[in-house]
């Protein structure tokens, strides 16, 4: 198939950036979307032009490196799929595709389709962990975890940190990402001692990074490659509000 691509090109963080049109010919329907871009990039190199920079690594939908907007859809039109697992058979000959990086104040564009998602790491730093130094752990079976709880925690823990939720959210909120980690740890018995501090610190870190707010549109859930539920957002809100009610006027420990 032949495609017309409009790709966001931006030389560096300071560059203004613009959409540039490319034609890609004879794309195999069995190729993945990233392989289609590989083909484009080889053509560009052949012409002496800089290839389109995009982030990718595992190419099997788990590392969370890849992701950009395709015609207004984070990770493209297929639900539950990252762009590396999106295959060209879902497109048709003659399609015109607009490819843009995630847009968020907290995710500055570094080059072309590559953005800096360090804000996610800083949210984790605020409390997305259980404090247990190496060697401190008790025998693993000392703390039973009911199967439904473990399963629910796993549902949340599947998040790959790709940033699609932020990208698709009309408010640029990071609530799905943050709530997935808050819920994963707050559901488990091991996470209870730090439960409320975690909710406070991580929610506030999210604001500090410049993400928007959640107005419960559920766009994030619709594009999440791991189909993480917005129920976790409610759970995070509950833990946060409970924590606020309990702590009253105290502000959380700054971490």
């Amino acid at each position: 198939m032949n495609l017309t691509l409009h790709v966001w090109r931006q030389k560096g963080p300071a560059d203004e950036g613009r959409m540039v049109q490319y034609e890609v010919k004879d794309v195999s329907e069995h190729a993945s979307f990233l392989e289609m871009l590989d083909v484009l990039n080889q053509q560009l190199i052949g012409r002496g032009e800089e290839p389109v920079a995009f982030e990718h690594d595992c190419r099997e939908g788990i590392c969370g490196s890849c992701g950009f907007m395709i015609n207004g859809d984070a990770h493209g039109p297929m639900p539950g799929t990252t762009v590396c697992q999106l295959h060209m058979r879902h497109f048709k000959d003659g399609d015109v595709l607009h490819i843009e990086p995630w847009r968020s104040r907290a995710f500055p564009v570094l080059k072309d389709l590559v953005v800096d998602r360090g804000a996610f790491d800083r949210i984790i730093q605020a409390g997305g962990f259980i404090s247990v130094a190496t060697g401190e752990a008790p025998e693993a079976n000392l703390i039973p975890v009911p199967k439904p709880v473990a399963d629910r925690a796993m549902d949340a823990a599947q998040c790959i940190g790709c940033g699609a939720c932020v990208a698709q959210c009309p408010n640029g909120a990071a609530s799905l990402f943050t709530s997935a980690k808050v819920s994963h740890l707050n559901l488990l018995p091991q996470g209870q001692p730090e439960r409320f501090d975690r909710a406070l610190s991580m929610v506030e870190a999210m604001d500090r990074e410049g993400f928007g707010y959640c107005s419960n549109h559920a766009e994030c859930e619709a594009v999440c490659p791991k189909e993480i539920s917005i129920d976790f957002i409610a759970r995070m809100n509950r833990d946060y509000l409970k924590a606020k009610a309990q702590r009253g006027m105290k502000t959380p420990l700054q971490t």
């Binding site: 259980i130 752990a137 008790p138 693993a140 703390i143 039973p144 975890v145 199967k147 488990l188």
Partner: peptide, 22 residues
């Protein structure tokens, strides 16, 4: 042996049996 203990304590959501054990 220690690895499993450490990871369970960190909150790794290992698969569980209905009794809650690993």
């Amino acid at each position: 042996l220690n690895i499993i203990d450490q990871c369970a304590a960190q909150g790794v959501p290992f698969a569980r049996e209905y009794g809650g054990l690993l």
